[in-house]
Every structure is written in structure tokens, then in C-alpha cells.
Amino acid sequence: MKILTTVKRVTDPNMKIKINADATGVVTDGVEYQMNSFDEYGVEEAIVLKENHGGEVVVVSVGPSAATKELRTAMAMGADRAILVETDEKLDSDAVARVLAEVIRKEEPDIVVMGKQAVDSDRNQAGQLLAAYLDWPQATFAFSLEVADGWATVGREVDGGTSTKRVKLPAVVTADLRLNEPRYASLPGIMKAKRKPLDTMTPDDLGVDVAPKVKVLKYEAPEERAAGEIVEDLDALIGKLRDEARVL
């Protein structure tokens, strides 16, 4: 089977975020970039599917030319080839979904497995929008995935517990944290990845207008939370909850 997965180059989520002077984004000077961690689960699952069913793993990124590093990392983990849709613009989720849809119409994979969201903007939309543009079924927040006879059975993390969904392939599946344990890119893998094909194209080549539909007006840091307090006993806690927090 042909499996398509995606990676986004994101800022290191462990760094302290600073909003830039004109509030149009975050400061990116000296910031490290890495693969979106949810995408690591997507790439791992794609490789597992290939190991179990045979076929090919194609990894796609939409982003700057430097995102070849994240694509090489995915290939070092085991993806077979990569496609970079190169753009320096900041795309909204809708534009990303439309770009991916065009790549997928060309590639015709049997399944798309991608991270449920990116840890930089945390929008959690691209997978769902992609399924809609392709008119494919979708199963989001996967913690388990079985593929057999043209159907995928997906265990999903939902509010209040879990649910199981069966979708007919081709379909879009988005990965949650408990789906698998992503492997490290081994050294032999890194050396092999050097020779794997990486195609580059632009949104223009795909005929996609990436002008944003969502306009960001302003970035604002959340209000600083006051430090917590350790209370003596249960009575003091109840007192505080009732009189200060007023939640009882």
C-alpha cells in the first residue's frame, strides 16, 4: 500500500516564547526548529504500516527550504521519498490542506497518516480540512490503527474516553500521542536518507492560491498566573475555595 504522511517544521516547543515588538508573531531569532512532535507519531505509524503491509511511504512538508532537514529526518526513520512544497509564507490551515490535497491527487495514496496538530500553532484543523477537500472519510486523534481489506479501524481519544471508528480507504487518519513510540533516526538510516529522492515544488506549481483566509490581528501572551499556595489542611483548602476562589 502507498502511505502518505506529513511533517511540519516547527519552533522548539521547549523554548521560551517571546512575542515580537509589533505583535505580529513570535521572535524567531536564535530559535531552534524541529519536526512537529505529533508528526513523529504519524511518520512512525506510516513506517509500521509499510512494515506490515509492504508498499511505500511518501512524506510531505509545506514550508521553507530549510524543512528539508525535517524531511531527511523522516526518511532517516524509514520513509522512502519526500516532497517539499516550498513557501516562505505563513500558511493558514486551510491553505495547507488545499496544498496537501493537490499533492495527494497526484500521489493517490491508500491512506494519509498525519499528526493531529502542530505544536507551534496548535490549530488542529489541517487533517480535517484535508479530508473534506478530498471528500475522504477521516478518523482523528488515533491511538490505535489497524488496516485490513480496504478498511481502517481506528481507536480514537475523545472527550470522556475512547471510541472506535471504521473508515473505508482511502482515508485521513490523524495521530495522537499514544499511537506508538516513534523510533530514532539511526545512523545508517541518516546515511541512507541522503540518497533518497526529495522533490521540490511550489504552491504555484500545484495551482493553489495560498493567500490566507484567516487573518491574524495580534499576538498576545496569556496573563501570568499567580503562584500556587500550599495550605495547612483540608478545612483551610475548603475555606480558600469558598471565600477566595468562590468555586464552592
Binding site: R72, T73, S186, I190, M191, A193, K194
Partner: peptide, 15 residues
């Protein structure tokens, strides 16, 4: 090179 960068990230994450 990109391989060195990927190597460093892999080892750092393993570490």
C-alpha cells in the same frame, strides 16, 4: 551538513 544536524538532534533527543 544536514546529516550532521539530523545526527545531533537524534543523539540529543536520545540523551
Amino acid at each position: 551538513t544536514e546529516e550532521h544536524q539530523v545526527l545531533r538532534e537524534m543523539v540529543r533527543s536520545f540523551v
